[in-house]
Design a protein around this nucleic acid. Structure first.
Lengths: 207, 207
DNA sequence: TGTGTAAGTAAGTGACTACTTGCATTACCT
DNA sequence: AGGTAATGCAAGTAGTCACTTACTTACACA
C-alpha cells in the first residue's frame, strides 16, 4: 500500500507550495505514484491533504516540563530549545497553514493543538515556580508564557528571512529568551527565595 | 484613472486569498473594473501584485522612539501598542506573504523592511537606556528587542486563531509584554539607577 | 486454476486561468 | 467639432486543474 508514501509526499508538497499549489500531479510525482492512485485512496485532494495534516500533527511529541521544578533555568532552557527545534523543523508548513486560516479554517484548527498544549504546560510550570517559592513577585503566568513562546515562535518563523534581527548564534537564542524571562520573573542564581511547604513534594498535583 | 482602486483591491484580494488565489477576475470584480483594464494598466497579474505590495509597504508609518529616554515605561508601551496595532491591521496580508516566501522570495523581502526598521529603532532605544543609566545590568539589546517584538508579533498573528493562549484583554497585552521586558532589564519605578553623564543630553548621537 | 485487490495506462471532461484581439463607448481638453 | 486617452464589451486562446471512465497488469491466496 502506497498510502503512507502519498501522505508524506502530500505533506512535503504542501509545505512547499500550499494548498492551491499542491496539485495532484505534483503530489503523485513526489510520491512516485500514478495520479489516479491518489483519488482511489483518498477520494479527493482536499481529503488527502486533510489526512496528511492530521498525520503530521499526531506525530508531534513535545518535551515535558516537570511538575516540581528543580532547576528552573536548566529545565526551561531545555524546553525552549526543544520547542524551537520543533517549530524550526516545521516552519515551512506552519507558515503555509497560517497563511490559509481564512480559506481553510478547519485545517488551521488542527495545527493549533500543539501551541495550545505547549502554552498550558508552560503556564503550569510557571505557576509551580511560584507555588514552590522560586518567584515572590506578582506576575501573570499567561503573559509570561505568551512572551517566551512568542519570542521562540517568531525566531523560528523569521530567522531565515531576516537573520540580522535575531540574536546570534541560533543555538543560544532559546537560552537567551529563557534567561530574559526568568529575570523578568525574578528567578535568579538557581536559588529559591522562600522555602515553601511544597519544596520537596507538592501536597496535591493540580487536577 | 482607476489605478489606485485596482491597487487597493489587489491588496485586499491578496490578503484574503494569497497570490494563487488572487485571480485577475476576482481583483477586477473587487475594484469594480473590467478585467482588461488590469492588463492594460499593469501588464500582468504578477506586476500588479508586486506594485500593490510596494504600495502598502511604503504607506506604513511606524511610531518613533525618542533618542533620549525620559519615561521608559510610557515610551516603550506606546511604541509596543502602535507596533501591535500596525501588525494586527495587516495580519492577514502578513500571514499570506510569509506563507509564500519559498515561492516568491522577492515579494517577502519588501515585507521585511518594516520589522527590520522596528528592530533597529528598538535596539537603539534599549542601548540609550543603558547609556543613560536606566540599566546597569549586562544584557544583549538584540535579544531583548527580538523578545519584545516576537511576543507582539506572535500575539498579532495568533490571537484570532487561539485567543486562550494570549493575555486578556487585547488592549493591555502590549503593555504587559513591555513591563515584563523592562523587569528583565532591571528598569523599574521610573527611577534611573545612576546619573549618567548623558543624562540631560548625550554627547553625540550615533551616526 | 480462479478470484480479489492494489496499482498502472490512456484518454478525456468541464471548469477555471492569465492573457489577447477587435471594436465600441465615454469623458475630457483644445 | 475633433482628437486623445481611459475604459468597457464580446469573444477567444492555450494551458492547467481536479476528477472520471474504461481497460490492463501484477501479485496474493485458496
Amino acid at each position: 500500500m502506497k498510502r503512507d508514501e502519498i501522505l508524506s509526499a502530500a505533506a512535503g508538497v504542501f509545505a512547499q507550495h500550499g494548498f492551491r499549489g499542491s496539485t495532484t500531479r505534483r503530489i503523485a510525482d513526489a510520491a512516485g505514484v500514478n495520479e489516479i492512485t491518489i483519488f482511489r485512496q483518498f477520494g479527493s485532494k482536499e481529503a488527502l491533504i486533510r489526512e496528511a495534516m492530521q498525520h503530521i500533527t499526531q506525530s508531534a511529541g513535545l518535551e515535558t516540563l516537570p511538575d516540581v521544578p528543580a532547576d528552573p533555568e536548566r529545565e526551561l532552557t531545555e524546553w525552549s530549545d526543544s520547542f524551537m527545534l520543533h517549530l524550526r523543523l516545521r516552519n515551512s508548513i506552519i507558515r503555509k497553514t497560517m497563511g490559509e486560516i481564512e480559506e481553510r479554517p478547519d485545517m488551521s484548527e488542527c495545527a493549533s493543538y500543539v501551541p495550545k498544549q505547549a502554552s498550558n504546560d508552560l503556564c503550569h510550570y510557571l505557576a509551580a515556580l511560584k507555588r514552590d517559592g522560586w518567584i515572590t513577585e506578582k506576575f501573570d503566568p499567561k503573559s509570561a508564557a505568551a512572551m517566551l513562546m512568542g519570542a521562540i515562535f517568531s525566531d523560528a518563523m523569521g530567522r531565515d528571512m531576516m537573520p540580522e534581527v535575531f540574536p546570534q548564534p541560533l543555538e543560544r537564542a532559546a537560552r537567551m529568551y529563557t534567561r530574559l524571562l526568568l529575570r523578568a520573573l525574578g528567578v535568579e542564581n538557581g536559588a529559591r527565595k522562600t522555602t515553601s511547604k511544597h519544596s520537596k513534594r507538592p501536597k496535591q498535583l493540580s487536577a
